[in-house]
Design a protein around this nucleic acid. Structure first.
Lengths: 108, 108
DNA sequence: ATCCCATACCTCTATTATCGATGTATCTAA
DNA sequence: TTAGATACATCGATAATAGAGGTATGGGAT
């Protein structure tokens, strides 16, 4: 099976969607995405942490240091109200574009 | 309606798919994508022409100068055998990743 | 006649996102 | 005691896109 990266431009949406389930730390987000996507979406750390920084800077998420399930120090991210709104917009736009692409792919 | 760009990483696939219908010039490709996608996929020239160059370099398309329907000089691109194969691979990978993303978006 | 718009090509630079490598540190299990 | 999993982060290279700029021609409207 191909290693397969994330579609550029969709990572923030995927992270926001993951955080919608509840606060989670970076490592956990990557694990979750890998698992739920059936091992397809492999988010490298070099993509993940900069993306999380962007979410903080834009006010879509906030972070708090705490303890992970395994007792280690971890930074828990959670959605802000602005982040929830942003997620809705991104999902809508994603659907719109994917539908447009499907139109092209289906048109003979 | 938002101006909405192309999903990064999908442009080459969209062009290849357009060329599968028959040879076409750059300007025509952009027009076609805009029309078939219901005005959603707006391909700027600064994205289009570099992408066409990549297709040539990779041997997925070949080009020939000719006359457009309106009598102007135009460069017609057409799919090679390698391009057809490449298109199939890209479509398959696209479906795979979009399906993975949908899994994430649908999971509660 | 002239001027604008659509058609048609292309390049350049800035911006942005992703990836892979690198580095730190801790905890657990073999 | 050592390897692997957990957990953070940054750095540089790569690549793709967008937007602006530049050339040229044809047709239709003023």
């Amino acid at each position: 099976m191909a290693p397969a990266e994330v579609l550029p431009g969709t990572l923030e949406m995927l992270i926001l969607r993951t955080l919608q389930r509840g606060p989670l730390h970076g490592y956990g987000i990557a694990q979750y995405l890998l698992q739920v996507s059936g091992q397809v979406l492999r988010v490298g750390e070099g993509s993940l942490y900069p993306a999380l920084q962007r979410l903080l800077v834009n006010g879509w998420a906030e972070a708090e240091w705490g303890q992970s399930e395994t007792g280690r120090r971890a930074r828990f991210y959670s959605l802000t109200a602005a982040g929830k709104k942003r997620l809705q917009e991104e999902e809508k736009e994603f659907d719109r574009i994917v539908e447009a692409i499907r139109l092209v792919l289906r048109t003979v």
